[in-house]
C-alpha cells in the first residue's frame, strides 16, 4: 500500500517535472532553434554565380563546403571577406569550396563589392530568398560548415577572424 503510494507519487511528479523541463528547454532555445541542425544533412540548393555558372550544393560531395551568407551593407560581413578570400586561395586545392550567398541584393551592388574587395570565390545571389528561408538565416553574417558527406558540421554567426576561418577550413578538409 505504502509502496504503491510512493511509486504513484514519484511517477506523477516525474511526469510533471519532465513536462516543465521540456517547456523551459523549448522556450529558452526557441530563438536559436535552427532550421538546419548540426549533424544533419544540409538542404540542397542551386544558385547561379556572377559568371553565370550554376552551383549545386550536392555536386560538391567529396569536398568540404564553407557556406557564407552575407550582405554588402553588413559591416561584419565586409570585415571577414578578405580572410575568407585568403583561406579560400589556400585551401581550394585541398578540397574546400567557398560559396558566398548574397541575401537578395542587386547584381550591381554585389559585383561592385566583389571588385572592390577583390574576391576570388564564387558569389551567388539568393534573389527571392528561397535559400535563406531553407536555412533560416538571421542574423548576418552566417556561416555553415558542410563536410564531404554533405552534413552540417558547424554553424556560426558573427564576424570571423582569419584564424577562425583557417580553423573552420581545416575542419571540413576532406
Amino acid at each position: 500500500m505504502k509502496k504503491r503510494r510512493l511509486v504513484m507519487r514519484t511517477a506523477i511528479l516525474f511526469i510533471l517535472a519532465a513536462a516543465v523541463a521540456y517547456t523551459l528547454y523549448a522556450n529558452l532555445t526557441k530563438d536559436n532553434r535552427m532550421k538546419v541542425e548540426v549533424g544533419k544533412q544540409a538542404p540542397d540548393f542551386v544558385l547561379i554565380d556572377m559568371e553565370g555558372e550554376k552551383h549545386k550544393l550536392s555536386d560538391y560531395k567529396g569536398q568540404g563546403v564553407f557556406l557564407n551568407f552575407w550582405g554588402t551593407w553588413c559591416k561584419p560581413c565586409e570585415a571577414e571577406m578578405p580572410y575568407i578570400n585568403n583561406q579560400y586561395n589556400h585551401y581550394k586545392d585541398g578540397g574546400v569550396q567557398v560559396l558566398a550567398v548574397n541575401v537578395s541584393e542587386s547584381e550591381l551592388a554585389v559585383n561592385q563589392f566583389a571588385e572592390r574587395k577583390k574576391l576570388d570565390f564564387p558569389i551567388v545571389i539568393d534573389t527571392d530568398g528561397q535559400v535563406q528561408t531553407a536555412y533560416g538565416i538571421n542574423p548576418l553574417p552566417a556561416t555553415f560548415l558542410i563536410d564531404k558527406d554533405g552534413k552540417v558540421v558547424k554553424y556560426h554567426t558573427g564576424t570571423l577572424t582569419e584564424s577562425t576561418v583557417r580553423e573552420f577550413m581545416e575542419k571540413i578538409k576532406p
Binding site: D44, F45, V124, D126
Partner: peptide
C-alpha cells in the same frame, strides 16, 4: 501557388 514536383531551393 503550389509548387509542382520537387524543386531545390534557388531553382
Amino acid at each position: 501557388y503550389k509548387r509542382v514536383g520537387p524543386a531545390i531551393p534557388g531553382e
